[in-house]
């Protein structure tokens, strides 16, 4: 009976997930243009990957997005949680915060060219505040920080909304008790909100980690154009895979692309497992 009921799910999982990954893993040991015969390369693709400074750079960028972007996002989300729980008009504030995550990331990539141009609305607004020499937002060296900023901005509202949903479920008497004990707003956050919402926060952290590795279109649109890929120092692993699989005017290097994808998959698996271990704790209350 067990197999009868599990087999449909298992089969779907195998066909839709395990098989493609296995196929990609297998391809990563070959040199293949996607059309002709495969040539066995063994581990050479992986060796070449780690010799390529741009792949190492892509790994670092991916980790930067995950950890730097993630830290900023979660610190902001938790700060907002602290404020939102106590403030008036919080339903409106929550909707406003959630809004950016509804908009497709690509829109920001395209709109940035207009918003942050030297004579664009952002600089005009700064000019009104007396800042006459604003940074060169769209300069090549600022590209990656801009991408990171946009990611944080869109993700913060999203995770705040999820964490707030958990915070709403915390019984008010816990806060009242804390208040009677003389706890201030921050102490209430630390001893009530944080532990009570911890499981949701931990799940959010995993969600962020997994989604941060797959970020792709934002970088492509921020830095790329119709005639060129984004500057190589803004690539993350997803973009590296894309450039190998769909190079401009030359044959695809699918072996390298899959090797990069598998490396990225392994990295994210390790990070997720470690993160789960670190964030796991016994439930406070049943």
């Amino acid at each position: 009976m067990f197999w009868l009921f599990t087999s449909p799910a298992l089969l779907a999982y195998l066909v839709l997930f395990v098989a493609p990954v296995a196929y990609a893993f297998w391809t990563s040991f070959y040199k293949w243009d996607g059309m002709g015969d495969k040539q066995w390369r063994g581990l050479r693709n992986y060796q070449v990957l780690f010799e390529d400074p741009y792949f190492r750079g892509a790994l670092v960028n991916t980790l930067k997005i995950t950890f730097v972007g993630g830290s900023i996002t979660f610190v902001l989300s938790l700060l907002l949680t602290l404020v939102l729980r106590e403030m008036r008009g919080r339903l409106f504030a929550r909707s406003a915060l959630f809004f950016p995550s509804l908009v497709n990331g690509m829109v920001f990539g395209i709109a940035a060219g207009f918003l942050f141009s030297p004579s664009g609305p952002v600089n005009q607004a700064l000019g009104l505040l007396g800042i006459d020499t604003p940074p060169k937002w769209l300069a090549t060296e600022n590209l990656f920080p801009m991408i990171l900023g946009t990611l944080v901005w869109t993700a913060t509202g999203y995770y705040t909304s999820i964490i707030m949903a958990a915070v709403d479920q915390i019984p008010p008497y816990l806060y009242e008790a804390a208040e009677l004990d003389g706890a201030n707003a921050f102490q209430r956050f630390r001893v009530v909100t944080l532990p009570m919402a911890w499981d949701v926060i931990a799940t959010c952290a995993v969600l962020w980690t997994v989604s941060s590795v797959k970020i792709f279109e934002l970088i492509l649109l921020f830095g790329g154009s119709s005639s060129a890929t984004p500057p190589a120092d803004t690539w993350n692993t997803a973009l590296y895979v894309y450039v190998q699989a769909f190079p401009q005017a030359t044959v695809p290097r699918l072996g390298m692309a899959t090797a990069a994808a598998i490396t990225s998959l392994l990295m994210i698996t390790v990070i997720t497992v470690v993160l789960r271990r670190l964030l796991r704790r016994e439930p406070v209350e049943n």
């Binding site: 090549t140 060129a228 190589a232 401009q248 005017a249």
Partner: peptide, 16 residues
């Protein structure tokens, strides 16, 4: 006719 990632990896970073 140069193609592929020679441009992004070799030429572009310094040229910019």
């Amino acid at each position: 006719g140069v193609a592929g990632d020679w441009q992004p990896k070799v030429l572009d970073p310094g040229y910019l």
